[in-house]
Design a protein around this nucleic acid. Structure first.
Lengths: 220, 220, 220, 220
DNA sequence: TATGAATGAGAATTCATTCAT
DNA sequence: TATGAATGAATTCTCATTCAT
């Protein structure tokens, strides 16, 4: 957590630091990022950085939290707009498009997501993923439950496995179009926004389409 | 690629270098690994390392290639043993167990797989993943084709999406029991071998079970 | 010397600062101590510290003075209790036990004494030792004089050398049981309170026992 | 212990590093010394320093060992010259003069001795003192034993206490003339070589003179 | 073919002190 | 009188790579 000093800072300076830090962590990952570089870009002294955050990990965790919140709130807005309750599978299909699109439009959040997902150092990874995973789960779990409760999901669906799979699939779809080496099959790396969205839908559909509960023809 | 000098080396020395390098890259990842440490462990001079490999990345790529071959050959042995042609889905179920088990038993290959999957540095990641992905594809593609050709797979299956998904799922299942932060849902991180195998099967089944083509009752 | 501001401070705040500073200087020595840490522990701002003391050395000197006074007053109480006038050597034997015991029971004063005795920085050392030595001398000199004047000390005793030696021996005996590396012979470092007292007496006796003036058989 | 690299170094470079390091450690103590400064003075790069010694403590320990050997060998030369066997007390009197004189003439060794004796950091102190104390004991113990065995020492002398006391007194006498704050009584700090030697003798005599065994008039 | 010394930039973090508010 | 943000030089130590021998 940032220090009180950080919270009292003029917004302009805070933004400068955030921008510099996001750029650096996004570009080089947590372990590879240089605090020196961040200071230089943000035009603050090395000493000041440590008045704002207790250490490198603290700063990174704060950025990850902010990014998670931005992403989550964008997705929740989307969810609110979609007919989840009446057409879960159609909504999901649109949602995944919005998801992939979001990361096309927000390179900052995409880079931080990459940094979070590609951290090799164990303690750093565990700490940061914990935060991010929490946000994912808090959105996905009620969504899947809703699908189940509204009778759209086959009742025998392994919901935990489904959530685990989505938790794996979502960051992958967010990153694969931008991060070389992740997808050698579907051509996600080509860079076309529309292609990426389509291919993302293909993967998602493969997983979720079979889980749709066929509606018995109602007699009323 | 290793230099000719490397290939002319006595096997004992080559093995010493490989063992040291695998340990180091496995433990710290590509960027974090120290050539100093590798030299010390392998008991060779720093100069020699650069006579065997052109640079750090070259050495790492070679290790990844070797590991891929080991893993692939273990899996191909397994595949040969299993009734893929007559019971694709049963075979796959067993295969995934063997897969997860393999990484329980081969910490060296597991650590290198982690390093490969968690590398943030773009050129290093692209180079290594290309190699590794090629091996995956060369095994998975014929397997899926066989299932299709033998009529066990629903004909409308999106085979590319399936392969892309397996390519994502397999490393995940290999690592999640050993790498903290990857799976917050199914409890793969607990460390129990049997649990990990079971949970791996759950995730795989969720994806592939619905793809099974119901056999029309044959008349012979 | 503390500023007037310091003296006007509410006792509670002063005590908090003193406690924090003693802990820090005791643990890390003068040079190693961090004013940051002291502020944090005392819950005062960094600016305030420099309103109370002109600088780090000033604060340290003040602490040393306070500790000297505490130690001195404890010893003077002891001296008053002992039959110095009639049995100087017996009294001294008891006194050294009390001395060693005092530092067993007062870790705070012990740590500050260690900091004082192990300071390498010349100006800091000179300033602090001057204060501390003054207190030692003001107690020891009259004591030795009394022994001499009451005819218990051999008249040819080199009193200055004796005082110089005591001035060396006393801090040593206070610290050796707690500070590793000071005594490799008598096993003072073992940590047993009783042992330390006994060994302290051995060293002292070796020095002072031969100085006892044999009483000429009185004729009354 | 220095690395093999260090031992293979051209003598000139080794000497430059040693000189720079001795000056810095002598002047600022172990904790206060700056490796940067040492590099600069020795005109070697920062990286090189760590090819010679594993870390700061390693370098310091090496210097302390060298100084101990120099000091010890000077003293052993002196001891060999003196009639220890026939006139222990006279020899000791001369020896202490040589001792105090040595540190007058060897500022380098004196400064390192100060650094060793005034180190507050516990592990550093313990490590360095261990080396130095060993040398002291290996010289002093046989000396005292010889005095005892040749019947010059009172048989009831507490020899361990004596050695412990000498171990305390010797560094003190070496340093007190040069280090402010150690001796406020005898005026050792004044700086006169002859005075220092005389005062050193006073302190030593006070301790050892009474231990002389009066020779029974032999009848041969 | 092997060696291993040399490098200098770079890492994260701490420090005592100042001064405008 | 109190505050606390700002500083920039300082710390020890690591790094991949080069090249003369």
């Amino acid at each position: 957590m940032p220090t009180p000093t950080w919270n009292r800072l003029p917004a302009a300076k805070r933004d400068a630091v955030l921008a510099a830090a996001e750029a650096e962590f996004g570009e080089r990952g947590f372990s590879g990022a240089s605090l020196n570089t961040i200071c230089r870009k943000a035009e603050i002294s090395k000493g000041s950085l440590f008045q704002y955050f207790t250490d490198k990990a603290d700063m990174y965790a704060h950025l990850a939290e902010l990014a998670s919140i931005r992403i989550r709130s964008a997705m929740e807005t989307e969810v609110a707009r979609l007919p989840v309750r009446t057409d879960f599978f159609g909504a999901l299909d649109e949602l995944i498009g919005a998801w992939v699109g979001y990361f096309y439009d927000h390179p900052r959040d995409r880079a931080l997501t990459a940094a979070t997902n590609l951290e090799h150092d164990a303690p750093a990874r565990a700490a940061v993923r914990a935060t991010v995973n929490r946000h994912y789960l808090e959105v996905l779990t009620p969504l899947v439950d809703l699908a189940h409760d509204s009778g759209q999901l086959r009742p025998d669906t392994d919901r935990d496995a489904l959530i685990a799979l989505l938790l794996l699939l979502l960051p992958h779809l967010a990153l694969a179009p931008h991060v070389q080496g992740l997808d050698p099959v579907l051509g996600l790396e080509e860079g076309e926004r529309k292609t990426a969205i389509d291919q993302g839908r293909r993967m998602l559909r493969l997983v979720v389409a079979p889980l749709r509960q066929e509606q018995s023809p109602s007699t009323d």
